[in-house]
């Protein structure tokens, strides 16, 4: 993980029907950072993520990964650097077994035989689901599915992890365990989430998107203290920073 960075410059994206999804978004994320991208529904978070590994093509502006401009020519190399975990694990796990699913990415990268099996094994063990290898995805619980979905990406050994709503749909226990897991990853991490408590715990830096533009970009705590900003962007303080419903005390401020 020598040198990984994500840079977005004046990124614009128009949908075919003319709606502006992203209008002039710029930021730079350096190696090892853990950054949350938050915003109300329709603020452009998902669209932004899809630009980060070249699934969408910008209407204007550019995306640089590891200082390399994302173009058709560099796409294959850069997709290897940016691992993308989608919100809905059912969309990500499309193969008949967990093993086949985790092997899908490395196979596309041209790995075979022993090296392939090693990657599959390592990735599954990294997220603690080695025993699910031969299971079919529809027989997994929500938390297991999320973990396997992360393993499918880890097997490609990316330097940058991009995760869309990693904690959505999980029960409190599974959420807690997943957060513990994510915290340990040494990768450069980018999340979108409505789970602001998770953001508060995992991400020192937060970028707020509002109507396709960057409304704020700074330390997470500062952003969550800015009531006016949060209200304008249709967001709310994390529960940890709200008064205790019983005694009114705040745990974090």
């Amino acid at each position: 993980m020598s040198h990984s960075s994500v840079e977005v410059r004046n990124l614009r994206h128009l949908y075919p029907d003319g709606t502006v999804a992203l209008g002039d978004v710029s930021f730079r994320i350096s190696q090892g950072e853990s950054v949350a991208i938050i915003g109300a529904n329709g603020a452009g978070k998902s669209t932004l993520l899809l630009h980060l590994n070249g699934i969408l093509t910008p209407t204007g502006g550019e995306v640089r990964i590891n200082d390399l401009l994302l173009t058709k020519g560099t796409l294959a190399t850069l997709r290897r650097s940016v691992g993308m975990v989608f919100q809905e694990p059912d969309d990500q796990l499309f193969m008949p077994t967990v093993h086949d699913d985790v092997a899908f990415g490395p196979l596309n990268l041209g790995f075979k035989g022993e090296e392939l099996e090693r990657r599959v094994r390592d990735a599954l063990e990294r997220v603690g689901v080695g025993h699910l290898r031969e299971k079919a995805p529809y027989n997994l619980s929500g938390g297991e599915k999320k973990r396997v979905a992360i393993a499918t990406v880890l097997a490609m050994t990316p330097e940058i992890l991009v995760m869309d709503e990693p904690t959505s749909g999980l029960d409190p226990h599974a959420r807690r365990r997943l957060m513990g897991l994510i915290r340990e990853f040494p990768h450069t991490k980018i999340f979108t989430s409505h789970d602001l408590d998770m953001v508060l715990e995992l991400c020192p830096r937060t970028i707020v998107l509002h109507e396709g533009k960057v409304a704020a970009d700074g330390p997470t705590l500062e952003i969550f203290r800015d009531d006016e900003l949060l209200a304008r962007c249709r967001l709310e303080k994390p529960f940890l920073m709200q008064g205790c419903p019983v005694c009114g005390k705040r745990k974090a401020t």
């Binding site: 294959a76 997709r79 990500q92 499309f94």
Partner: peptide
């Protein structure tokens, strides 16, 4: 469409 995106993201050609 989302599945296809997920496939592309993992290097599907």
């Amino acid at each position: 469409e989302r599945i296809h995106l997920a496939m592309l993201a993992r290097g599907f050609t």
